[in-house]
Design a protein around this nucleic acid. Sequence first.
DNA 1: CCCTGCATGTAATCCGTTACATGATTGG
DNA 2: CCAATCATGTAACGGATTACATGCAGGG
Lengths: 184, 184
Amino acid sequence: MSLRHALLGLLSEGPASGYDLLKLFESSLANVWPATQSQLYGELGRLADAGLITVRSEGARGRKEYAVTDAGRDELRDWLLNTRPATLKRFEMLLRVFFLDHISQDDAIAYLRDLHKEAEEQHAQLAELSEMIAPYRDNFTVNGRLALEWGLRFNRMTQEWADWAIAEVEAHDRTANPDPCKPE
Amino acid sequence: MSLRHALLGLLSEGPASGYDLLKLFESSLANVWPATQSQLYGELGRLADAGLITVRSEGARGRKEYAVTDAGRDELRDWLLNTRPATLKRFEMLLRVFFLDHISQDDAIAYLRDLHKEAEEQHAQLAELSEMIAPYRDNFTVNGRLALEWGLRFNRMTQEWADWAIAEVEAHDRTANPDPCKPE
DNA sequence: CCCTGCATGTAATCCGTTACATGATTGG
DNA sequence: CCAATCATGTAACGGATTACATGCAGGG
């Protein structure tokens, strides 16, 4: 239930509407915890029912401004202090690597080059974001920079790995097995 | 729908029962694409209905041995060649980093140390696995080693990042704000 | 004979995605 | 006045997790 805590965290920085929060998810949290509009409004309702947030005011166009309650703040702290991230990782990109022997060596290398390229592009995108937020000094941005640095290192690491993996696939001679898709 | 392709991939290495496949998921694919028993039997049924796999033989204790069909092999190749991984990444560990200003500096550092430790432990676990599979030379293991190397680099990277982040948090003096949980 | 491991299945529930549906306000 | 943006909500569907439920076979 991390969406719930993401919302509590964002609202702890200050009150906001569902729409405001959606924008925050699209900008700051897009690479870390994506969420859709549907999900967000649904969870806001549930948080309000549970008394962790309240509607502080209603504005134009049916806008509801939510604020976190003391109970909500407690819940956030408890999540941060007393629970550990349950990291069930699914990497489709790596799953494909397991089955690379079912396509030709050239296609396998093309796949790895593609991964390299994507990591390069995402790295560039994050570097740009890093420059954009450079002037800001608020707590949220300071924390965000820690996460961003992780992303930069992650993409650099993936590029280096892809280079290594390409060399590895090239070295592992499969010419003895000209039709690797049907090993029998 | 990657579970489907994971199953097709495993069955392309040779026929197996649901139980066999479950063991493979628990060993080889646990860190890349975890799947539960329920999910697996359900998907096997759907794959059989779709004609991508067939029951090659039925053994003792109701054991059904599945084998991939030509249609299934085509589907696997198509997945590998003509689709790109849709990487929606959710990192609860990083989400928490965004809200580190809601706990004390000491607690924040303790959290980062914990991440370091977990990465260290997972690295050790993967290194052990690496030694265990060292003698094997089959295609599946060769590919698996590529994925494993990514995991080793990932955990090394995360450790280095955690060290950097701890220094960063220590440098960012928050003594001026003695109650960072309630910034107002 | 009993325990462990082999072996399969179903049901409830939750979370996430996509799509549909609607309407108010503001700036050009 | 029209388009873009602000703003919220619901419904259908699919995938994942947890729990429940059952039973056979082989080794000690």
